[in-house]
Simulated scan of single mutants.
Amino acid sequence: MKTRIAALLCAAAALMSEHASAAEVEVLVGDLPPMVNKDGSGREAEIIATTLERCGHTAKFTIQPFTRHWQSFESGKGDAVATVPVGMPTAGTQTEPYVSYQNGISFLKSSGAQVSTLGDLNGMKIVAFEGAASIIPGLSDATGGFKSYREMADQETQSKLLYGKRVDGIVGDGMLFAEFARHLQEAGAASGVDASQPIEFRAIFEPTPYGMSFRDPAMAEGFSRCFAELEEEGKIAEINTRWTDKYRSALSDNYMSY
């Protein structure tokens, strides 16, 4: 009986300690809709905010161009930084992976391209997100076989290049491309391209896992623990599936298991 009471007291003390140290956490995030939208919503943003909330904290997102948010964290800004490739050296302490991106190739259905492996991109004009060759395993070794390859941060421009048939395919996360395609479709003729053309997405890469990095090691440990709890309860899968469903017509069943 005494042992049980002692255990309950310890658990209560830990809970009180955690909530006593509750904080508003400034998280540096990349501008990657629909993973992170300008209003703080998004698939990845919701996972981060929900996990921090489970730990008793609140998230304050500072949105910057992708990769620049890493540089800002290295220069001393923010309490945490998101979308850090697993194992990439950063300041602070990295958490366990909390989100994965499904990179692949998006191309016009009318092209008749048959793509199921990275090697099938040989001879094609490819554009990718900034830093893709250093993040996606195997990509840097394969680009020599492409007719052309370039990286750019502006993913709306990428989409216009594809719809305008100036490139053959876009390497990147399928959900990200689907969101930019949606914007162009809504803009209609004002977009300057025919965004009504059907697109296909093929997940030719393994999912890329990402972690967070926190300046406070205890906060990093807490984030991993709270995420594991939410994952066990099915809440993380619920968030992922709900956001994937928004783009189901474009992604079909090619976006991991969601």
Rank of each mutant, 00 (worst) to 15 (best):
K2S: 06
A6H: 01
A12Y: 03
A13M: 07
A13D: 00
A20I: 00
A23T: 00
A23H: 05
G30H: 02
P34M: 01
D39H: 02
G40F: 07
G40Q: 08
G40E: 07
S41K: 12
G42I: 09
G42S: 09
R43I: 04
R43A: 12
E46N: 05
I47C: 01
T51I: 04
T51E: 02
E53Q: 11
T58L: 09
T62I: 10
T62W: 01
H69C: 13
Q71P: 06
Q71Y: 14
S75D: 15
G76S: 09
K77Q: 15
G78M: 07
D79F: 00
A80Y: 06
T83S: 10
P89Q: 01
T90K: 09
P97T: 08
Y98V: 05
N103F: 12
S106P: 03
F107P: 14
L108N: 11
S110C: 02
S111M: 02
A113P: 05
V115A: 06
G119P: 03
K125S: 15
G131A: 09
S134L: 01
I136F: 04
S140A: 15
D141K: 14
G145W: 00
K147M: 11
S148Q: 12
R150E: 14
M152L: 14
Q155W: 12
S159R: 01
L161S: 06
L162W: 05
L162H: 07
L162F: 04
Y163D: 04
D168N: 15
D168H: 11
D168S: 13
G169E: 03
G172N: 14
G174R: 14
M175N: 14
M175T: 14
L176S: 14
F177N: 14
F180T: 09
Q185D: 06
A189T: 06
A190M: 08
A190I: 03
A195D: 05
P198I: 10
E200T: 15
F201R: 14
I204C: 15
T208L: 15
P209V: 09
G211M: 06
S213W: 05
D216S: 04
P217E: 08
E221M: 08
F223Q: 02
S224R: 02
L230K: 04
E231H: 05
E232M: 05
G234K: 07
G234S: 07
E238F: 04
E238W: 03
I239H: 07
R242S: 15
Y255F: 12
Y255M: 12
